[in-house]
């Protein structure tokens, strides 16, 4: 489904200092894989997701989604293949537009937009059904601007928008990190329900080692722009959070001390 080969991305700051964000990353993702990605800050997790989504170009390497080489396609051109949920609940939705208008934009992701009516009655009925599945009461608030929703509600809506047109690939970038623990858990459950229920292929970045093992079928650990650990079953099934922490420590060495606060 996703084939990333020899991907390299270097960021330069204004002083000419270069930082290798992705260091010749190779990744092969099968259809239906639900992969969790962990790593400390600056490990390259978000950069990998952004590179796959096309937010910026890469310096080297190739990205193929479902057999199509998208390496040089701009973000909007490959958007029909990809659904995304961001860490910031504000980014995934347009605040001044209503719930149904946001959904209408998302549902037409694979199509060329035209001068047809933005929301049709049939779409509205479908949106209502899908929103009811979220169990947040949003099905009765179709006409309300998204800006009135809470962070958790917005994130649930973003998740629905990202998956409504069945993307080939779902990219989740710490999408529960900005939420309170209870809401984070709800969004986590919803994510699991949608990804497994619809058999989506997903990459999920998380800081939560517990979640990294609980969710999905494969776990990657990144460090300094490289994938340093690729856990699959049956080995992964036997892993505990402590084991993972040990792995993390051995990879990070002395720098681990700095990460402790993050992983607590």
């Amino acid at each position: 489904m996703l084939q990333v080969s020899q991907l390299r991305k270097v960021f330069c700051n204004g002083n000419g200092m270069a930082k290798v964000a992705l260091d010749n990353v190779d990744l092969h993702v099968e259809v239906g894989d639900f992969i969790t990605i962990i790593g400390s800050n600056g490990a390259g997790k978000s950069t990998l997701l952004n590179a796959i989504a096309g937010v910026y170009g890469v310096d080297q390497g190739q990205i193929r989604i479902d057999g199509v080489d998208v390496t040089n396609q701009p973000e909007h051109r490959r958007a029909h293949l990809i659904g995304r949920v961001f860490q910031d609940p504000m980014i995934g939705t347009a605040a001044s537009m209503s719930i149904e208008e946001n959904l209408a934009i998302a549902v037409k992701r694979p199509e060329r937009l035209g001068m047809a009516k933005g929301v049709t009655g049939r779409e509205r009925a479908r949106f209502r059904e899908l929103l009811a599945l979220l169990d947040l009461g949003l099905e009765d608030r179709l006409h309300e601007p998204v800006g009135l929703l809470s962070g958790g509600q917005r994130q649930a809506l973003t998740l629905l928008m990202a998956t409504i047109s069945t993307p080939k690939l779902l990219l989740l970038d710490e999408h529960t990190a900005a939420l309170d623990p209870k809401t984070a858990e709800q969004i986590g459950e919803l994510t699991r329900k949608i990804v497994l229920g619809r058999r989506l292929t997903a990459l999920m970045v998380t800081h939560n080692l517990q979640a990294a093992l609980e969710f999905g079928n494969r776990t990657l650990m990144m460090d300094q722009g490289q994938i340093v650990l690729d856990l699959r079953n049956p080995r992964r099934a036997k892993m505990t959070v402590d084991d993972l922490l040990q792995q993390f420590m051995s990879v990070r060495g002395e720098r681990f001390l700095d990460d402790r606060a993050l992983l607590a």
Binding site: E75, H76, H80, A94, A95, S96, A104, I105
Partner: peptide, 17 residues
């Protein structure tokens, strides 16, 4: 819709293609 979303949230509308 796309025009309004562009003024509201560029990142969101780009990720919608």
């Amino acid at each position: 819709f796309a025009l309004r979303a562009t003024g509201d949230n560029e990142q969101m509308i780009r990720s919608c293609g």
